[in-house]
């Protein structure tokens, strides 16, 4: 078995609106389109990785919120109905997903060895969170790759963004180590939006794009600043500015996904590819890919 490898790392946002707008057979509500900029972004991301071979997807979702440690889905199969508690009018999705329990356990064990509180989630009745389902669907609509799902430990809520980031950087290192040791080729996804101030009203028709825009200029400036760092290979700067970004843009990065991703990718200094940017109910969202396959040495 060769050394495992991270094929690509992506920011893959999860607002249910994107799945709603696509009208996949798994989702009950029906839309007249909407949020095309982001959906085309996802299309470009899928195209970009279409000819890359990989064995599994590792995903961290801010909507599986755990306050006591970091948890990993720990059973091979989950199926059920995911209804978004905040936008149930848009997202009622029948899912059926395969988990790479072996890889999940490997990351769990590495994280544990690094001193992080961790737990495998082995209750078969568990309902997978809608962030995981949304990102899982948009990244891989066929669901033909096993997935590792990592919960979002809400340490920001207890301590500070700085402490959260320290934990997430550790978790990222453990993730990378476990992937490399696994011999598998893996795509890593941070299911995350950027600025996160929502509108508090919804249009009569949620997909009415004449109503969609960023909630404020300040949010836009933050999003563009972070995207610029991504596009110019300045991940360390993103990490450095994470506390300000998270606080001022009320960013979903408080869930640790972006910090974890950048750490898992070993804080890349090469440019990421921006596949798309758009707002969803006022929040800023970007589909971004770090093409590790071009930069990391392949030890086959």
């Amino acid at each position: 078995m060769g050394r495992g490898q991270i094929v690509a790392g992506c920011i893959a946002p999860h607002p249910p609106h994107l799945v709603y707008a696509e009208n996949p057979p798994q989702n009950e509500p029906v839309a007249e389109g909407g949020w095309e900029q982001l959906r085309w972004g996802y299309e470009r991301l899928r195209d970009s990785l279409a000819d890359k071979e990989y064995d599994a997807i590792v995903l961290l979702s801010p909507h599986w919120q755990t306050y006591v440690g970091t948890h990993f889905l720990g059973l091979p199969q989950f199926e059920g109905l995911s209804v978004d508690p905040i936008f149930p009018n848009l997202f009622r999705y029948h899912y059926d997903m395969t988990v790479d329990v072996e890889l999940a356990k490997a990351i769990h064990d590495e994280a544990e060895a690094a001193g992080l509180p961790v737990k495998m989630m082995e209750n078969p009745d568990f309902r997978v969170d809608y962030g995981t389902i949304t990102t899982g669907h948009l990244f891989n609509p066929d669901w033909d790759k096993p997935i590792v799902v990592i919960s979002s430990n809400r340490s920001t809520a207890y301590y500070s963004v700085e402490v959260m980031q320290e934990i997430m950087v550790e978790l990222g290192k453990a993730t990378r180590k476990a992937i490399e040791a696994s011999g598998k080729k893996v795509v890593v996804l941070a299911s995350n939006s950027l600025s996160h101030r929502h509108f508090t009203t919804e249009s009569e028709m949620p997909e009415d794009m004449s109503k969609e825009h960023i909630t404020s200029h300040a949010m836009h400036l933050w999003d563009m600043r972070i995207i610029e760092y991504m596009r110019t290979g300045q991940s360390q700067r993103i990490l450095d500015e994470m506390p300000e970004f998270t606080e001022q843009a009320i960013a979903e990065s408080d869930g640790g996904g972006i910090s974890w991703l950048l750490s898992t990718l070993d804080t890349p200094d090469y440019p990421a590819i921006l596949h798309g940017y758009g707002t969803i109910i006022g929040t800023g969202n970007a589909v971004v890919e770090w093409p590790c396959y071009q930069h990391e040495v392949t030890a086959a």
Binding site: V68, H71, K119, M121, E122, N123, D125, F126
Partner: peptide, 13 residues
């Protein structure tokens, strides 16, 4: 439905 807590899933459903 069947509720399983996000944190305390090991207590049961």
């Amino acid at each position: 439905w069947v509720l399983v807590d996000h944190d305390f899933h090991d207590l049961g459903s």
